[in-house]
């Protein structure tokens, strides 16, 4: 039963990829581009050599975190469209902790930074969650709007309390966090750090939670049928808050890890599409936790390959954005021809 489900999810993902590629080829033809060159550069850029491959894997990390963000909330029937904002809040919290207490030992700042990131992201997610369970505000709207607030709020932080005079400050960046607050580089000369291991660990933890923990089980019931959950004594609201809280904490940790692992300073709106990409990956993975890294790998191949394709394949980057757009459309098509028709109702 379960195996079947995974196989069908994989087939769907493959179908989505093929469709997106097919439509992209047509677009390349219309634009009179060299298809062979473009795609060879795309593949080369994604997995062609050690450095490019490192870049692809490095880009996976935040994508995994953001996909988990969406999937965990979705388990509890909460549509968290605000991963982006929670990510920034986490990133800025981690930066702030490091900048405010530079005297602390680096290992401690690292831990505190991640914790601060989780707390920041969680709080940012819990406000809409409380509004939802208490006042029935649609969390889709509030989380989405909170993304804007997060962008401008972090900009305010960068420009006022953490302003550094000079070019760095004017460009919209904080000062660098202390040197020691960083993650171990896995491939020398690349940006690939242990961040990816954190992301995989987070996947495993979330998967464990959903499968083995009582609260994970209860959240699943709430997500599937909140009425039945309520009638069987499951505290529906607190489970929804929990799902949103975990979701926001993951996004916040994702932001903190990006700062500590790669950027070492907070730049205004430094990853404008991760939240959205996370939703796409989550949908591609059919909200199945173990499949999220696989889907994230696919998308990061595209994004990483796009850089090379743009530079050497004479194809604008925007084409890749169009491809991602196509993926979203194909993913949201619920009834794929081979994915089985709607369940047959057996009745006497």
């Amino acid at each position: 039963m379960k195996k079947k489900k995974i196989i069908s999810t994989v087939t769907i993902a493959a179908f989505v990829a093929v469709c997106a590629l097919g439509i992209s080829i047509i677009m390349l033809l219309i634009a009179h581009k060299d298809i062979g060159l473009a795609f060879s550069k795309l593949i080369q850029g994604a997995v062609g050599n050690k450095m490019n491959f490192a870049r692809t894997i490095r880009m996976m990390a935040p994508l995994i975190m953001m996909a988990l963000t969406f999937s965990v909330a979705f388990r509890g029937q909460m549509f968290n469209a605000g991963g982006q904002g929670q990510f920034y809040l986490g990133a800025v919290s981690a930066t702030a902790v490091s900048l405010m207490f530079p005297a602390l030992p680096a290992w401690l700042l690292l831990i505190l930074g991640i914790i601060a990131g989780m707390v920041g992201g969680m709080l940012w997610a819990l406000i809409p969650a409380v509004l939802k369970v208490r006042f029935r505000c649609s969390e889709v709207v509030t989380t989405l709007m909170f993304n804007y607030i997060a962008v401008y709020f972090t900009e305010f932080l960068v420009r006022v309390p953490f302003y550094v005079p000079g070019a760095v400050g004017e460009s919209g960046s904080t000062a660098n966090i202390p040197d020691g607050v960083s993650l171990t580089t896995l491939i020398k000369g690349s940006e690939l750090t242990t961040e990816i291991l954190f992301a995989l660990a987070a996947t495993a933890m979330v998967w464990y939670w959903s499968k083995w923990m009582v609260s994970g089980y209860e959240t699943e019931i709430v997500g599937v049928n909140p009425v039945a959950a309520r009638y069987t004594g499951v505290p529906v609201k607190s489970r929804q808050l929990l799902a949103m809280g975990i979701s926001g904490a993951i996004a916040g940790a994702g932001g903190a890890l990006e700062i500590i692992g790669v950027f070492h300073r907070f730049v205004i709106d430094f990853a404008p599409s991760v939240g959205f990409d996370g939703i796409v990956i989550s949908l591609m993975a059919g909200n199945s936790f173990p499949l999220i890294p696989v889907a994230a790998f696919f998308l990061s191949c595209l994004q990483s390959g796009a850089k090379t394709m743009e530079m050497f394949g004479k194809v604008p980057r925007s084409l890749v954005d169009v491809m991602i757009g196509i993926i979203i459309v194909v993913v949201t098509v619920k009834r794929l021809p081979f994915a089985g028709r709607g369940r047959k109702q057996k009745k006497a």
């Binding site: 923990m213 009582v214 599937v224 049928n225 069987t232």
Partner: peptide, 28 residues
């Protein structure tokens, strides 16, 4: 009464998931 798409097993333990012997050290 039921969380329809889920398995019979998951539906049958609904309501006793917090009690021994289903709950064991916070786990199911």
């Amino acid at each position: 009464g039921l969380a329809l798409p889920l398995s019979a097993e998951k539906n049958l333990i609904l309501g006793i998931q917090r009690k021994e012997p289903i709950r064991k050290k916070g786990r199911i």
